[in-house]
């Protein structure tokens, strides 16, 4: 599905990056441990996390993730948003708890990406 569909369905706030109508979301991953995400998240995943510091951008960019959803009403600071703009990483926030975000994405048909 397209990123646009995810954003609309979950009513996400789009902070920066990406063309919502062209980016394809192929799966999802959730974790707040950087070494876990870098090892297991796959290209095309949306990453749901409660981390909001600058380094989420490097991880998302290196893995070619479809986007990062910072959940639980947390907000990345301006430096993080600036970095995400530079790296063209799509960054979103949601007031919903991570559990709820993941559950809704699962209901939409998204699964853990095998490849």
């Amino acid at each position: 599905m397209k990123l646009r569909q995810v954003v609309n369905e979950l009513n996400l706030e789009h902070l920066c990056g990406g063309d919502l109508d062209s980016v394809e979301v192929t799966g999802g991953y959730t974790s707040d441990l950087m070494s876990d995400v870098i090892a297991k998240a796959k290209k095309g995943d949306v990453w749901i996390t409660n981390q909001k510091h600058l380094n989420i951008v490097a991880v998302a960019s290196l893995l070619n993730l479809a986007g990062v959803i910072v959940a639980g009403g947390l907000r990345p600071d301006d430096a993080t948003i600036e970095k995400a703009k530079e790296e063209n990483v799509s960054l979103f926030v949601s007031d919903l708890p991570a559990f709820e975000v993941v559950g809704r994405l699962y209901n939409m048909g998204l699964r853990t990406n095998a490849g």
Binding site: D32, L33, M34, S35, V37, A39, T49, Q51, H53, N55
Partner: peptide, 15 residues
């Protein structure tokens, strides 16, 4: 607290 320090970096590199 930043999500580092899981002790997975070197094992990840190894694999």
């Amino acid at each position: 607290e930043m999500g580092f320090g899981a002790g997975m970096g070197l094992p990840n590199m190894q694999s």
